[in-house]
Design a protein around this nucleic acid. Structure first.
Lengths: 205, 205, 205, 205
DNA sequence: CATGAATGAGATTTCATTCAT
DNA sequence: AATGAATGAAATCTCATTCAT
């Protein structure tokens, strides 16, 4: 890949990132391509050269951001592959990490935009679901199944267990973060994780 | 209150309802006042006579709709005041009713609009929270406390128990309804209620 | 018709006239709605309130102008209804009047715009033909038929005779006016009329 | 001239032809250089390398096409240099050939573009008139003068006669071809030629 | 009070034209 | 010499909002 091609790719990346930033700040309709171009450091027509119109730009920006978000979440699950002696502690750590990601800027923005534009972009759900909660739940269910086989858990229905784990964990977030407009203290996040794990282990431990 | 005043109030109601309908369909920015006026069956300037501008119109339409939504939910809690012999069955019925409301059109639209515009209308959260999940949780916690006192439950921390009940109940909805774009069969809703109640009673029953 | 309605109609007239003026000056694509609005003395959106888009505006402006042009031409034919003793002189006068109209600003502009945009607006021909040369030829043929019946002409085929009269008359104009960009002296027009009438009467007189 | 130079000239030709094709299809303003480049099979900047800007490109494309059109017309006049015994027949044949050219695609496009852009490119008339109707009329007048000298015609004013011949011949075309948007049957063209020649010979024969 | 008409401001998109390779 | 990429400028159209009736 020569320097020219790389330059073009870099610019495309910059546009997609700038677009997500601006869409997150303003919403789809209020965001103007002018501002996106400025954020990406290019001229307005350059945006149109790369992504044919505003809607296409939106879809691609959402997809790229969703992919990044999933990668971060999957990475946070890693400790479950090698849990120490204290399973509850490991679960709490993982839960804590997931909470932090889920309460973070990118996730909140993705959720807001998804909710906001799902009626205008029905296909958006499929686009982002490629990298959505199902993928995370599945990876988590895999871990829980392994732990059950290893006799450290009694999650006979790992899919359901995984779904309930994330529900217990993330459910309270919506209200606490005031729909993503408030940032939570780390201590508060940890308490939420602990409470969720307690209930979870009561049911499936 | 004479008939003229009543007519005026009716017209205001029609405008607010029309506004919510259109905002729900189009989103805040894409909704145009013209269309709202048409939906309400009045002329555009009449809208401005009643609600000073588009933002005010939005806030009032959201508040009115949130109030209605809360009233519906509180009404659904009533059976817990007189639970029959089978507590699990009553909880399941109530859960089912809440699920139906939560998956319904008005709630989904409210959630979408709230998520979508929370950054542009930070005060919107306070406006709708007057009629939001906290009020519901509190009413539910009251019921759970009574039931605990009556020895039919062991919810020593009724607030937490209530929060977890609604989390278990409503958590899976987001994914299942595809963010409110799919309508669920009644049978599926009932299964969700049963699963939530099972886990809830394992922890607090 | 009350003053309000009249005001609206006046404004519509002003817009159509301004539009024709600007289209004539700039051509369809180069004319911008901004400029048309300025020419008509209204704001840009007012133009869109009356005529839904640029293409519609163009069609209506062309139609209005074509109607005016036909009315002028038909009026110029009047003397043939009461020809004096000298038929050649009357024909020459009428021919002269037609030439003046045909070489005038409105006609030239209409022709230019029609030629220019016929491929983009295939329906334009039908719109303007309602008021086009056919209508003129027919009116002229009527007159020639009457004159033939009165024994003052031998135009056994009045339609053909009328067509040839206008061809002889107007044919040379295109080149002489340099496609409508040069204005001809009245004397030159009269000579053209005389030459045409001479040839015409040699054939049909 | 080496092969490189020839290649360059070929490319210039391709650009001019592509340009005329696109201008004819879209009009000057609506034609975009992108499309012209595509039609010519080159990249956009290559167009600018050969012809400095869009206006220049237009002028050169028009000139080249006008030259071709004149050459075709002059060739069609040839039979008049060696008329057979039947002058009327020869005139009809020539008229027919001229009509065919005049009603053909290139001529119609040239006329449309000339009318359309004469106000923006006043010099266009001079450019195309080098190869315009005057040159044709002159060549025709020459022929008519020769025929008069030879006693086969009585065209004492050959210039006027030539002008009237083309007027009679081509005048009806405008309406019949619907400004060049309809293609005429060969039989119809021949009838037009015969009618024109009849009238012409009545006057000058 | 309700409304038809008018407008100022701003959004998306296109295009002729120029760099850098 | 030819091209992919980038850009400044401008055009159509929409919309929230205000007069005048």
């Amino acid at each position: 890949m020569d320097s020219t091609t790389r330059g073009r790719i870099d610019k495309r990346q910059a546009i997609l990132e700038g677009a997500f930033t601006v869409f997150a700040r303003q919403g789809y309709a209020q965001a103007c391509v002018q501002e996106i171009a400025a954020e990406a450091g290019v001229a307005k027509p350059t945006v149109y050269n790369h992504l044919s119109d505003k809607a296409t730009l939106f879809r691609h920006a959402m997809e790229a951001s969703a992919r990044t978000a999933l990668e971060e979440r999957l990475a946070a699950l890693e400790p479950l592959a090698r849990p120490g002696d204290d399973l509850a502690a490991t679960l709490t750590d993982v839960g804590h990490a997931l909470l932090r990601l889920h309460a973070g800027g990118r996730s909140c923005a993705l959720r807001r935009l998804l909710y906001a534009e799902i009626t205008h972009f029905p296909d958006l759900l499929e686009i982002t679901n490629q990298y959505g909660p199902d993928r995370l739940n599945q990876a988590l269910a895999d871990r829980l199944a392994r732990l059950t086989l290893a006799g450290r858990l009694r999650a006979a229905e790992p899919d359901l267990a995984a779904e309930q784990f994330t529900s217990l964990l993330l459910g309270p977030l919506e209200a606490r973060t005031r729909l993503g407009t408030r940032t939570l203290e780390d201590a508060e996040l940890r308490e939420l994780a602990e409470a969720a794990v307690r209930t979870f282990l009561t049911a499936w431990g």
